[in-house]
Amino acid sequence: MVIIMAMHKSNRNRRYAMAMHFDKELINPNISRTIRFTPILYEWLEEVKEREGISFNHAVLQCIKNCMEEDRKDRTGPVGSKG
């Protein structure tokens, strides 16, 4: 399992590190989209893909998947809470 760190912005000013786990669920994506990156994000993703030996596309998909999972956790709250 490969773990890298990414910054996830939650609320306006709170930031925390988020561990990224690369999984096989993201193999063979089939929806094509065009996306534009800022230079700093592009350079960071290039570093990640080189360091981890994965494709640029896989790094982007994993970042998005991890943010989606964090967002779902944030929305549902801890077990037993009333959200």
Rank of each mutant, 00 (worst) to 15 (best):
2 V>R: 09
3 I>T: 14
3 I>C: 08
4 I>M: 09
5 M>D: 15
10 S>A: 05
11 N>A: 14
12 R>S: 10
12 R>T: 09
14 R>Y: 11
14 R>P: 07
15 R>L: 14
15 R>Y: 15
17 A>D: 06
18 M>S: 08
19 A>P: 13
20 M>W: 00
22 F>Q: 01
25 E>G: 06
25 E>C: 04
28 N>D: 12
30 N>A: 04
31 I>N: 03
31 I>G: 00
31 I>T: 08
32 S>M: 06
32 S>W: 04
33 R>Y: 07
36 R>H: 11
37 F>Q: 04
37 F>P: 04
39 P>F: 05
39 P>K: 12
42 Y>D: 11
43 E>V: 03
45 L>Q: 05
46 E>C: 08
48 V>N: 00
50 E>L: 08
50 E>Q: 13
55 S>L: 00
56 F>P: 00
56 F>Y: 05
57 N>M: 04
58 H>P: 00
58 H>K: 08
60 V>G: 05
61 L>C: 02
64 I>G: 03
65 K>C: 00
65 K>T: 00
66 N>D: 04
66 N>R: 11
68 M>H: 09
72 R>Q: 06
73 K>A: 05
73 K>S: 01
75 R>K: 11
76 T>W: 10
77 G>T: 05
78 P>V: 12
79 V>Y: 10
81 S>P: 04
82 K>H: 07
83 G>W: 09
